[in-house]
């Protein structure tokens, strides 16, 4: 319908989550109307993020260096690991100021329907990290959904087998059932962190 470059932009925008065909068109025409000095920083930001941001070698959080800022911070308790599904789940936990340990990002949750098996997540890396020693507690902060719960149970079983001396805890209920961590408010999340229970 439009010139090929315009169609390509619309197609790419429509692939973003939550963006339908109509919104993609609106965004594309907005970008077309912008002067180059306002439109190009977006393209550059996308390019930069893809070229420089990678996964932390230790915890799989986002990082620009081999390890992330949390792993580099010597003041943080290295004996305490909080396990989350996605890097974005770290933000609300950091905001509560209740957690002083390190993280481990799984990269998702177990979901046989979607073909996600334990091997598809960074679970083995977590086990190795804990086996290496010095970890006293693993807090499993996967989402309070069915897939998040099953993932938490899987990790708890695995830890009992591979690192029996490490305590495994789950965020205390307080998270609304079925809620994703990302959307939990800071107060409930803070309470959930301070009242975590053994798994």
């Amino acid at each position: 319908m439009f010139a090929p470059p315009v169609n390509r932009l619309i197609t790419e925008l429509a692939r973003l989550p939550g963006i339908g065909q109509r919104t993609a068109q609106r965004l594309a025409f907005h970008i077309l109307r912008l002067p180059p000095e306002e439109a190009l920083p977006l393209a550059e930001a996308i390019k930069e993020v893809k070229e420089t941001v990678r996964q932390c070698e230790v915890c799989f959080n986002l990082a620009v260096e081999p390890t992330c800022r949390v792993c580099q911070d010597e003041r943080r308790d290295a004996a305490l690991i909080c396990v989350v599904e996605e890097p974005s789940d770290i933000i609300p936990i950091e905001r509560t100021n209740e957690f002083s340990g390190r993280y481990h990002v799984l990269g998702g949750a177990l979901s046989p329907i979607d073909g996600v098996d334990p091997e598809d997540l960074h679970i083995e890396e977590l086990a190795k990290r804990v086996e290496a020693g010095g970890i006293t507690e693993v807090v499993v902060a996967t989402n309070a959904t069915t897939t998040g719960e099953a993932t938490a149970l899987y990790i708890a079983d695995l830890m009992r087998e591979r690192a029996p001396d490490t305590e495994v805890t789950r965020l205390a209920s307080g998270l609304p059932v079925g809620a994703d961590l990302e959307y939990a408010d800071e107060i409930t999340l803070g309470k959930a962190l301070s009242g975590r229970r053994r798994l």
């Binding site: 979901s111 046989p112 098996d117 334990p118 091997e119 079983d157």
Partner: peptide, 24 residues
């Protein structure tokens, strides 16, 4: 989810290690 995992294990596409978690 448990049914999907059973079918995958049966077809040899997944290991059975996560079944305990889904049972629980």
């Amino acid at each position: 989810q448990r049914n999907a995992l059973l079918a995958r294990v049966r077809a040899g596409r997944s290991g059975p290690s996560a079944l305990d978690a889904w049972d629980h």
